[in-house]
Design a protein around this nucleic acid. Structure first.
Length: 589
DNA sequence: GATGCTTTTTC
DNA sequence: GTCGTAA
DNA sequence: TTACGACGAAAAAGCATC
């Protein structure tokens, strides 16, 4: 226990202490104001960034034709908690319809009422049974983005949902999906299969701009949503299509997700274009945002259909992470048969299993059949530690939460080792020891590290350690050499280029390209980029101090990686970027 | 079927 | 994965 | 403490193209 070198335990503890210390409120937070401008509008956001440019916010209310609700309205409304402007009398056709009709703005005002005093009927500006306008949802997004308090946000969303339920319950599902996606995508299922590149393409076509132009704006604004907004409003309005509805948008998303095969990329792009063309107000902005983070569940069901038949394909209960050169048959890892056969040996056919296989090494099992579920763990008065490691790769569990469930670790481990047979190259169990001797643990860690492991998983065998589904805390601990003071890797590197920040980092550099100087070859060799670990103040500082060093083009050497063509490159170094570099840092900070 | 590019997923 | 900041 | 969203590398997966 009294080892002279830094022990694993020491490392853990010092790490914890450091973390605790860090959490102590630091004297003065650098830029609380700044935050407001950049950061307060993170997920969905829009105008505030540009609030200082009044020119953009036209004070006069132009008369618009039918479906257009001008952006300006939104903006001025948002900026200063505006009243439902009485001057803003609609000539919109909706208004002229017989019954008491309101516009979006008034609708939003309604939504901000306390739920108790809220009347869903008054908030709806569309007829009962009509499709919910996409604009309605989008404006709620916008409203939320300006709000910081959770309670208020919840209230607004709550009112919004009530309105939908009241008028068009059929659209509720679509609304919820679009809403939830913004916050918690998570569940597996269909994916849109598009990325920034496709969106940029669609955006360019939709508003008749060059892709280059869009990209440039993206760089400047740091948010494709804002780009969409800007491009859209600068575009001469052509004939106006039908206003978008939530259902339409949602359906189109589904179509996009299902598109596959030949020319699918093109088709997807066209779908997006179609939406963009029909979008008005701040719709384009949120359309883009939704697209960027969207994952779609196919339909409304499968989330809870874990017992359904086909679900092994879509929701495999066996988590397989094949890698490090060992191919496991087809892409899903099941075709090969080895694992399947293996599992069948041990497992009854009807039953649910759930394993974590990492890089071909198992080290824990959640439940086998029903026999292991929900037993209480025995109590151990003294702490014991079980460790498992693979000798080649990483150690992280694939299914953290549910792994903590039932039996105490030692029994789970025993069952795991009893129940499965190794098959070299396909299915291997991690080596593990049980110990509470720090010396021994240290040695084991050293061994693991030497064998290219990232580290160890440590599981306490305390009673407390067994049943705490919500908390991760001390049940399972990672122990990496990185965590140990004085052992972690550390390199002296030189920044060679900088990248424009996005989102809450617009205006400063968000990341830097780092290089290492090779004395022999007299050149800089890139190692990695780095974008985390800086305080906001530091970013600000570095950004301003480096801006003066920007050079129009990379010096001498030609930068190969596409990313690196991004200006500015400010380092005057002479050398060459080796495209086949072998050194890199996996988790630079 | 091999290759390269883009996007998604995982850590 | 890492990290800093605000809630 | 936790949640969130900046940011990273690399593997895997999907598509286009030859």
């Amino acid at each position: 226990m009294s080892s002279s070198r830094p022990s694993a335990f020491d490392a853990l503890m010092s790490n914890a202490r450091a973390a605790a210390a860090k959490n102590k409120p630091q004297s003065s937070s650098p830029s609380p104001k700044k935050r407001k401008t950049l950061g307060s509008e993170p997920p969905i956001s829009s105008t505030p960034i540009r609030e200082s440019k009044p020119s953009e916010v036209s004070p006069k209310r132009e008369k618009l034709d039918t479906n257009q609700i001008k952006t300006e309205v939104l903006e001025s409304n948002g900026e200063k908690q505006d009243e439902p402007n009485p001057n803003f009398v609609q000539i919109e056709e909706q208004v002229s319809k017989k019954r008491r009709v309101i516009n979006v703005d008034e609708s939003i005002v309604q939504l901000k009422k306390k739920p108790a005093k809220f009347d869903p009927k008054k908030a709806a500006y569309w007829e009962e049974g009509e499709r919910v306008p996409f604009l309605f949802l989008v404006r709620v997004f916008y409203e939320i983005s300006k709000e910081s308090g959770r309670i208020v946000i919840t209230e607004i969303v709550c009112n919004m949902l009530r309105t939908v339920i009241e008028t068009t319950p059929d659209d509720l599902v679509a609304v919820v999906y679009l809403l939830a996606n913004r916050i918690a995508p998570a569940h597996e299922g269909l994916e849109l299969g598009i990325g920034d590149a496709s969106i940029i393409k669609a955006l360019a076509e939709a508003c008749g701009a060059k892709e280059i132009h869009i990209k440039k704006q993206y760089k400047e604004l740091g948010d494709l949503g804002l780009v969409a907004k800007a491009s859209r409003s600068s575009q001469p309005l052509m004939r106006k299509p039908q206003p978008l509805t939530v259902a339409k948008v949602f359906d189109t998303f589904k179509v996009i997700a299902k598109e596959s095969g030949k020319d699918s990329q093109d088709k997807k792009k066209n779908h997006i274009k179609g939406l963009l063309v029909a979008a008005t107000d701040c719709e384009p902005q949120y359309l883009i945002r939704l697209l960027q983070i969207h994952y779609l569940e196919d339909g409304t069901v499968q989330i809870y259909s874990r017992n359904a038949e086909r679900n092994t394909e879509k929701f495999p209960d066996v988590v397989v992470a094949a890698s490090s050169g060992v191919k496991m048959g087809q892409s899903d890892g099941f075709e090969d048969g080895s694992i399947q056969k293996l599992l069948k040996l041990v497992l009854p056919s009807d039953f649910s299993y759930n394993l974590a296989l990492l890089k071909n090494y198992f080290f824990d099992v959640n439940h086998i059949g029903r026999s292991m579920m929900f037993q209480l763990a025995p109590y151990f008065p003294h702490m014991q530690i079980t460790m498992a490691t693979s000798y080649e790769s990483s150690f992280v569990a694939a299914n953290y939460e549910s792994s903590i469930v039932p039996l105490c670790s030692s029994r789970r481990k025993r069952r795991l080792y009893e129940s499965f047979e190794e098959e070299p190259g396909y299915f291997q169990l991690a080596t593990a020891i049980t110990s509470n001797d720090l010396e021994e643990i240290q040695t084991f860690l050293d061994t693991a590290v030497n064998a290219s492991c990232e580290g160890l998983i440590i599981k306490t065998l305390n009673r407390d350690a067994t049943y705490e589904p919500a908390k991760r805390s001390n049940n399972w601990l990672k122990l990496k050499k990185d965590y140990m003071d004085s052992i972690g890797d550390s390199l002296d590197l030189v920044p060679i280029a900088a990248f424009h920040g996005r989102g809450k980092r617009v205006g400063v550099y968000g990341a830097f390209l780092l290089a290492c100087y090779d004395n022999n070859k007299d050149e800089y060799q890139t190692i990695c980029k780095i974008g985390t670990g800086f305080s906001e103040a530091m970013l600000e500082e570095r950004s301003t101090s480096l801006r003066s060093k920007v050079i129009p083009k990379p010096k001498v050497w030609e930068v190969k990686a596409a990313d690196l063509t991004i200006s500015p490159v400010y380092c005057a170094a002479i050398g060459a970027v080796d495209p086949n570099k072998e050194i890199s840092l996996r988790f630079p900070r």
